[in-house]
């Protein structure tokens, strides 16, 4: 098993390297370079040339890449050409917000998707099954920013139940940063007011984001439960006189949720990149909105860093999913 994990991890290195090469080349083979924007208002061509030299944009691209790679190995993702701050610092501020949001969105999606999927399987081909499929797929298909704005208008503007934007109320002192996950930090600091505030801020963005994952969780749960229901032990359990609800919600679900679990893992990566629109509308200070800002200002160091970080998260999630798979089914480990 240990050898399997090790091999799996070694596979990640060339993948990430390839990812870096791909994005770096793509971003840097631009028709323009950022020097002019960096040099500022009314810079003369000579000043722009000076900036170009200072930032090394006049070097051959492979040289620029070598320099960059060396930095990355030393965990230095460079300095943002827009903010002048180390990119690592900015991402460290923002990544936890996205992780917290994505995690809660997955929780929402699972909390809705697993029961829906189970019921859909139990009553398969019923009206409920059909209706739920349309609803969950509809959730996937709805434009996130449209739905988000409606949520804001109803729950924030009309009903006034939930905060409109942001991660914490303006002026509320934040707890000491330990994990930078506000929900965790506020509990660690024993500040329930902050916890409640952060939780309320999370509801609408997480709900919007969860729609993207709901359909596939419900679908995989349904498939898993349908599969398990065919198994012999279900028949034995029924024959032994167990209540049907107990069979389904305890034994069947436990056996079938495995397929959905891997799916949930894979969704984590997918949701992180679909967080972009959601974060923009709710002013959620995560790396999605950071990426948009970076894109709009052609801040290529920041774009590279986001790509790399998201790539690493994908890779980690994939490894975890594979390991879980291998633990459940030893044949997988052998085949690699």
């Amino acid at each position: 098993m240990g050898r399997f994990i090790l091999r799996r991890m070694l596979f990640v290195v060339p993948s990430l390297l390839g990812l870096l090469v791909l994005t770096f080349v793509m971003l840097r083979v631009l028709p323009n370079d950022p020097s002019a924007a960096l040099a500022g208002e009314n810079a003369t061509p000579a000043q722009i040339a000076a900036v170009r030299t200072a930032y090394g944009f006049d070097q051959p691209i492979w040289k620029q890449f070598a320099v960059y790679l060396k930095q990355v190995v030393h965990a230095d993702l460079g300095t943002s050409i827009v903010t002048g701050r180390p990119v690592v610092a900015d991402i460290a501020l923002r990544l936890p917000a996205t992780i917290e949001l994505t995690f809660c969105a997955l929780l929402f999606a699972s909390a809705m998707g697993i029961p829906i999927g189970t019921l859909a399987a139990v009553w398969h081909n019923s009206v409920f099954d059909h209706a739920m499929r349309i609803v969950t797929v509809g959730g996937l298909a709805i434009a996130a920013f449209w739905f988000a704005i409606i949520l804001q208008l109803v729950f924030s503007m009309s009903l006034d139940w939930l905060p409109l934007r942001g991660r914490i109320s303006v002026g509320m002192p934040e707890p000491a940063p330990v994990t930078r996950l506000l929900l965790v930090d506020s509990l660690l600091a024993g500040r329930l007011g902050v916890f409640r505030d952060a939780l309320l801020h999370l509801v609408m963005p997480a709900l919007t984001l969860s729609l993207g994952g709901l359909a596939s969780i419900a679908r995989f749960t349904r498939a898993g439960v349908l599969d398990t229901l065919q198994k012999d032990f279900v028949g034995y359990a029924e024959a032994a006189g167990y209540r049907r609800s107990r069979i389904i919600w305890v034994y069947v679900l436990r056996n079938s949720v495995v397929a959905a679990t891997t799916q949930i893992g894979l969704l984590f990566g997918a949701l992180i990149s679909s967080a972009v629109a959601v974060e923009s509308i709710f002013d959620w200070p995560g790396i999605g909105s950071y990426a948009v800002k970076a894109i709009l200002t052609s801040d290529y160091k920041a774009i590279l860093a986001v790509t790399l970080v998201v790539g690493v998260i994908y890779a980690i999630v994939n490894i975890v999913v594979d390991i879980v798979h291998a633990l459940l089914d030893p044949r997988v480990a052998e085949s690699l």
Binding site: Q152, M157, L164, R165, I281, F282, D283, S289
Partner: peptide
């Protein structure tokens, strides 16, 4: 506070 979307900004003011 920096607010990205116009609609959100106006909503925040009205609230």
């Amino acid at each position: 506070r920096d607010i990205q979307e116009t609609t959100t900004r106006v909503n925040a003011l009205l609230r």
